[in-house]
């Protein structure tokens, strides 16, 4: 594996969910840096604002749809409309398996849609698969 670092941006308002996701991502052997944003506004600032994130850096977005200040689909649309960010893989995490919502996310360009509670095996494999397209830094299996 080569070592171009991909940053994972986790946009999730529920700290418990964020912690669980982080734990499972780590457990899947993914050691990349995880940046956690608790709402849409700060997430958009991070993505499109000055400073923090350089648009050229490779990025993976884990996006919760139910955010207190906006719908995750708005963020998804913004990412997919941006010429530099539109290739960024987005994993949508949500509590609902509403078919129309899932369809809408795929239409907007989401790469993977995962229903919570995450079946951890599936979640980890989804992350790993995405890692095949990106350069995801893997840490050696610990066990």
């Amino acid at each position: 594996m080569n070592a171009v670092p991909v940053t994972i941006l986790l946009i999730e308002d529920d700290p418990g969910h964020a912690r669980l996701i982080e734990k499972n991502v780590r457990r899947a052997g993914v050691a990349n840096q995880i940046t956690h944003k608790l709402d849409g506004t700060t997430a958009l600032e991070h993505l499109f604002g000055r400073g923090e994130h350089s648009k050229s850096d490779p990025l993976l977005v884990l996006l919760d749809l139910n955010l207190p200040d906006m719908s995750g689909t708005d963020i998804l649309a913004r990412i997919k409309a941006d010429p530099l960010l539109r290739r960024t893989p987005v994993v949508v995490l949500t509590t609902t398996d509403d078919r129309t919502e899932i369809q809408r996310c795929y239409d907007l360009g989401c790469n993977v849609y995962i229903t919570k509670p995450v079946e951890y095996e599936g979640f980890a494999s989804a992350i790993r698969q995405l890692g095949l397209f990106l350069t995801v830094m893997q840490v050696p299996e610990q066990d």
């Binding site: 529920d14 418990g16 669980l20 734990k23 139910n66 509590t95 509670p117 951890y120």
Partner: peptide, 17 residues
């Protein structure tokens, strides 16, 4: 049901932990 589910997921997830 949506909002009930969010805390429930924490219970499920952390119970798994």
């Amino acid at each position: 049901s949506h909002d009930l589910r969010a805390p429930l997921l924490n219970i499920i997830g952390f119970t798994a932990e």
